[in-house]
Design a protein around this nucleic acid. Structure first.
Lengths: 361, 361
DNA sequence: CTGAAAGCGCTAACAA
DNA sequence: TTGTTAGCGCTTTCAG
């Protein structure tokens, strides 16, 4: 059923080495021999054995994408867009993607990222959604495998790409402030994610710059999911009512689009209109957010570009150094790409407020 | 940097085989020896080489998930939920997932599904979103690899799981008919997908059973994406106006939730209310659809269960036959799981219609 | 231009 | 209980 190289060699009347060369396109096999080998291979239905090849070559042509808590990230359109871009790039370069599921880098059983990395089943690792003291980075770097991070790691010895979280958020808040909003709340992301931290930092910074206070009850933490954003917003409204007796906030920044969508749902459920009563801004710029009603105002990250830069960085480490020997090894660096504010229908100038707070009785 | 088994053997003062056994937990190594081996391994920082192991064992412990046109399926919450379930199951069983990107089974270069399968880099393949004459199934079965399909293949020699598309759709249509709707349109899925065909069949069947006509202009084909659903619905409305002079349809069945959400957007953009003017039903039961406004009425598939059945079927083929030799090999079979109608806010009884068609001038 | 031979690192009979 | 001996299937010097 599964002929191997020796079979082909026998049929073609040559040695294994010649078969190997012929099939690899080595220029030093005579055209005649090559033809015979190819014919024999075709006739037998021979196909090279990937694992054996990987063992002999010392590389597998597979790249792992290590997403933490994948059930979550898989449902995030942003991650998926990114994955698409990465997939395209790597496939074009001849690599397969191995997506590790449910893994934080510490787990070590079968089917774990650790097994993949330590067992050299992949040639490189792409770590997404970087966390604060990310065990996955420790693992991969310690094993000396090529590595690229999507996000901003808290260490400088690793290749990384990210959108400009701080500046992007600042733009979002300025947009709100320019529209006259002074009571702005924030649904932050999980604090163990560096991106979430940076966005929170941008938020605080922009508010301060505008001379606006941010009372503690105007801050809530969500988990980057739609329902998480919904719940956080509910808490925000409750706290607001407890502190002010009514809902005074007129604008809300959510740390990603999914949570912004959840926020819109929660605000509505509470009788508030978007953007009539409360303006909402998200982050990421996923296409889904432009399709809902109202289309979300958001800070768009250049997803595809993030993906292609990540791929570039991977390939740079994977390639055996093209051209001269010591020609610009480049080395670990952090690339930060600019984000752009995309005004949508979820933000509006803060005109006359409603007379009374609905849904209070 | 990378000690191998021979190094460990040397340090522990035993043979490679003993190291192999000790580390594999073979019961016939003496506790003393085992301790020495483990100590040596730890001391050297030894970790087994996955590729070498795979070659020797004849299996890689990796399972490929072959999704066609992944940019699309990745953005489908249904697929992602399914993937999550599969990932959990396979990880628990000690397998890693390899997600192949952009591949229809026919492509044959590096990084392709073909390479993975033919090169025996994976132990089994899970084919999702089965198509009509699916090249991926041909490829995998022809190579004799264990295979499970998510969907209903047009051949009986392959393990498969699917929701009951026909009956599910019939339930959806009946629901609409019971509410008094007689002018029902359908946004079908891509006709090369077996699931889309079955749902269309269910639609026609239910309509006929209710004694209702389905004029050609009440049928449109979308591509299972949100924007696709939106566009198809726009076409539907145009055709409706062209044929009737106004919009007479009061209900719409969309072949999946994403398209149903797009339909809602398109109807609204056209000045029609959901469910006031038009009721909408989707298919899949993704959680996202319950979060939008109004929460979508939908036919829910048992996603997690589809995933776990798929995993079971994979493992059944992967396991070297537990218990007695010829004990119920089971063999290829198609499991169809029942779907459930989940009434939401997007459907309503067809009360008095609006006076005039808006958005007509 | 082609062949022989030595691995890649691990597993698994088969002996001892 | 442990060691010896063959491979797994391919790549790659090193000769010829």
């Amino acid at each position: 059923m599964h002929p191997n190289m020796a079979d082909v060699a026998r049929v073609a009347g040559v040695s294994k080495s010649t078969v190997s060369r012929a099939l690899a396109g080595d220029p030093r096999v005579s055209p005649a021999t090559r033809r015979r080998v190819e014919a024999a291979a075709r006739q037998l239905g021979y196909t090279p054995h990937g694992v054996a090849r990987a063992l002999a070559r010392g590389r597998t042509s597979m790249v792992a994408v290590a997403a933490p808590s994948p059930p979550r990230s898989f449902s995030d359109p942003f991650f998926l867009d990114f994955l698409g871009a990465v997939g395209d790039g790597l496939t074009a370069a001849g690599y397969n993607l191995v997506l590790t599921v449910s893994d934080d880098g510490r787990r070590s059983g079968r089917g774990s990222l650790r097994e993949l990395v330590v067992g050299r089943m992949v040639d490189a690792v792409l770590v997404t959604e970087v966390q604060v003291a990310d065990a996955r980075l420790d693992l991969v770097l310690e094993q000396g495998l090529p590595c690229v991070a999507l996000g901003s790691p808290d260490r400088a010895d690793v290749y990384a790409v990210d959108g400009d979280n701080v500046v992007g958020t600042v733009m979002a808040v300025r947009h709100l402030v320019e529209m006259g909003h002074r009571h702005v709340a924030c649904v932050a992301g999980p604090s163990h994610l560096t991106a979430a931290r940076q966005r929170l930092r941008g938020f605080m910074q922009a508010m301060q710059e505008a001379g606006l206070e941010v009372p503690a009850y105007r801050l809530a933490e969500g988990d980057f999911t739609l329902t998480g954003g919904q719940a956080a917003t509910r808490r925000l409204l409750e706290a607001e009512r407890a502190a002010c007796g009514e809902v005074r906030l007129t604008a809300l920044f959510a740390s990603n689009d999914l949570m912004a969508m959840g926020a819109v749902a929660a605000l509505r459920a509470s009788g508030l209109h978007v953007p009539g009563d409360v303006s909402v801004v998200g982050f990421d710029g996923v296409s889904l957010a432009r399709m809902v009603d109202p289309p979300l105002t958001t800070v768009a990250q250049p997803v595809r570009q993030l993906g292609s830069v990540a791929v570039e960085m991977l390939l740079e480490q994977l390639m055996p150094a093209p051209g001269a020997s010591g020609a610009t090894p480049a080395g670990p660096r952090q690339v930060v790409l600019p984000c752009t504010l995309k005004p949508g229908g979820s933000t509006a100038p803060m005109r006359g407020r409603r007379a009374a707070t609905p849904d209070t009785a």
